[in-house]
Amino acid sequence: MERDVSNFSLLVLIVFVMIPFTISYFYQLGLKKDILWSSVRGAVQLFLIGLILTYLFDLPPLIGIPIMLSVMITIATFHARKKGKELPNAFLTILLGLVTIEIFVLGLWLGFDMVSFTPEEIIPMSGMVIGNSMVAMGLSLERMKAEFNTNEGKILAALSLGATPKQASHITVRRTLNAALIPNIDQLKTIGLVQLPGMMTGLILGGVPPIVAIKYQLVISISIFSTVSISAIIVSLVMYRFFYNEKMQLVDFEELKNKNG
């Protein structure tokens, strides 16, 4: 029989929430409202997703999976774009990037029979890939803006010497990629040593033998590793162009901000 957490046990979780709440109260951290709101919001969100997933899992895979993937990609796009609102085409770049990534992993998983085409497998695994890619794209955008800001003088110097935008952005793009990839590589290095990855934990709790759980974990970890890299590359190699106009001139950040709100 499948194991379940009883409703009473769930209620006991309130104790866990009360600990940071009490700390905030005693030390006057001003976080009480945030703690309560995020706990309630988190719980409600998860239950809602649970209900939606139950509904989607009952639909034929060819209908349920595309619906859920579209929703996930759309939300992820809106979220990642927040980091680069003033940049033109950020939305489109992220959206197309996430779609490409999803097609890429689906091709890999299904093509080599790593995952079966069922909502139970595709949706949570795609969620992990899309979520991680979303974070990577947002970080890359943020990093790229910061790099362009700090290196504006050097970029102007390069342009003034006859560099094309591609040549003038070389160092900026390299640094953005570096910054996005290093934590990703570090994470893969310590996987399983510091904390057991979420998916594996879930499978083991669900009664799957650890070796099988690890195989699944490897599939998802390597997929995330590769898609996060692709995300950073897409953002870096596409977005730097929008810091210039067609006359190979650096676009004014302030002007851009005013134009795109």
Partner: peptide, 9 residues
């Protein structure tokens, strides 16, 4: 163009 600050690579 020689900029006011040297901005060397």
């Amino acid at each position: 163009l020689v900029l006011q600050q040297p901005y060397l690579f």
